[in-house]
Design a protein around this nucleic acid. Structure first.
Lengths: 249, 249
DNA sequence: CGATCAATTGAGTGTGTTCAATGTCAGTGG
DNA sequence: CCACTGACATTGAACACACTCAATTGATCG
């Protein structure tokens, strides 16, 4: 069951044994940016719950669960996916430390996706009923969350636009570059070798391609000397060329 | 400049000469649903501004304008699009009476798209600074808007998923069915003949296809007796078959 | 009336798919 | 320890959908 590719503990893994003070959290931009006074910090600190560790294959929430909370990822990697009637699944996104999940389910009675752990994770649970309170700190946070939503909508539209005008190869490169940013700003690593937290099948699914097409694209890029393709890792040999190839020809 | 295809006034066109009372607005589900007491209604009524008529080709807002307000569409049709560096544009959506636009720009300094009028429109402007007030009515509205955002995100993800696994023909049919719903729930028309408020080129752009592909798909569907293709209109002859064709084969 | 833009139609091309076979690796049980 | 299993990845060949490029038609407008 457990995907063994990641049994090697990532150097970056922070093992949080108890509730992390909001003032020490890496994801303050998501909530504390709304207001940084003593009182707000205390309110947030008392309403949020640190949870973990979640193991590979665990669910943070499942699609049939009642929508109750947002989750901010403190460590690990999580994918959101929706099972389809025909037995297939549709991978809708990958999330990393500092990201927030659950926003996409707001306004519904249940969660809209399964949140599956890809790399051992700790999360900060923020009960949604906090947003329904008249607490002054929540009022400011609501406003802030709205701007986060705007960003997410723009990102979704950007994806739609790019998916239309880029080849599979370009989307793949763009995905790898995003992965670089997400993983390396967190880990402060210098190398560009990416240990893939997700299967190549998941990547294919997310990018709207077949696993075969991903294989062929990776193989072609390797022949061109842009990347190196490993079993569960990819190394970007020439980031400059890679970035050039992403842009419209 | 003005697209003349719609110079025939649509029967549904409501000419609002002055500010429409919130209590009489058709789009109450977007704002008043947050709270229906006297006080909230009065607060909304005093903060919103009815504007129009906007003519075909007018802009509700432009991409370089400072983000200031959300707009609820009271009548008419509006498209959102973004000019690309290469001179092309990317059409991101079509909006109808009861829809809200501007949400996608929240959190940014400027609007993220051009809002172009496709059919003579009246809108209700809701200044964004209202959301930054501590007014109790705005607190409830904020919460409501968050659930609207959740819906929009889910819709965006659904689009992404469908774009991946459906053919152009299926997406086109799905688009036409959506148009039916949007236009006919508003107009109470019985016929399934759709006067297209947007050009077929716009439809192609929105669906991520070439105009030629749209032409060919429409022609094929007409041969099959599912639709009838007119210059600026499309008639769905057999909605049952159309719906069947939309589903995954 | 010519100019312009949208829509259509045709022929050839290409990217990604489908289907099927093979390869690789980790875990499991004899 | 080795053979078996199952999931994931790779490779090949044939095919299909949508694209590109180009020419034509049609409608609208000055």
């Amino acid at each position: 069951m457990a995907n063994s590719r990641l049994h090697h503990e990532r150097a970056s893994l922070r093992l949080i044994k108890e509730k992390l003070e909001c003032s020490k959290c890496d994801s303050q931009h998501l909530c504390l940016d709304s207001c940084r006074d003593e009182e707000t910090m205390h309110a947030l600190n008392s309403v949020t719950i640190s949870k973990g560790p979640y193991k590979i294959g665990d669910f943070i929430y499942k699609i049939e669960n009642q929508f109750k909370s947002l989750f901010i990822i403190q460590s690990g990697v999580i994918k959101l996916e929706k099972p389809l009637r025909d037995g297939n699944v549709y991978v809708t996104g990958f999330y990393f430390p500092g990201d927030i999940i659950g926003l996409e389910s707001a306004g519904g009675a249940k969660y809209s996706y399964d949140a599956v752990v890809l790399d051992q994770a700790w999360v900060c649970e923020m009960p949604y009923h906090y947003f329904e309170s008249q607490d002054p700190s929540s009022v400011l946070l609501k406003e802030h969350i709205i701007s986060v939503y705007g960003q997410k909508l723009r990102e979704a539209d950007r994806l739609l636009a790019h998916d239309r005008y880029q080849t599979g190869e370009q989307r793949l490169l763009q995905f790898l570059e995003m992965l670089c940013k997400k993983l390396f700003t967190q880990n402060l690593e210098k190398t560009q070798k990416i240990q893939l937290p997700m299967s190549k099948g998941d990547i294919a699914n997310y990018l709207g391609l077949r696993p075969e097409s991903i294989s062929r694209a990776l193989q072609k890029l390797q022949r061109q000397g842009v990347i190196r393709n490993y079993k569960n890792a990819i190394e970007i040999v020439d980031m400059k060329v890679a970035k050039k190839m992403i842009c419209r020809s």
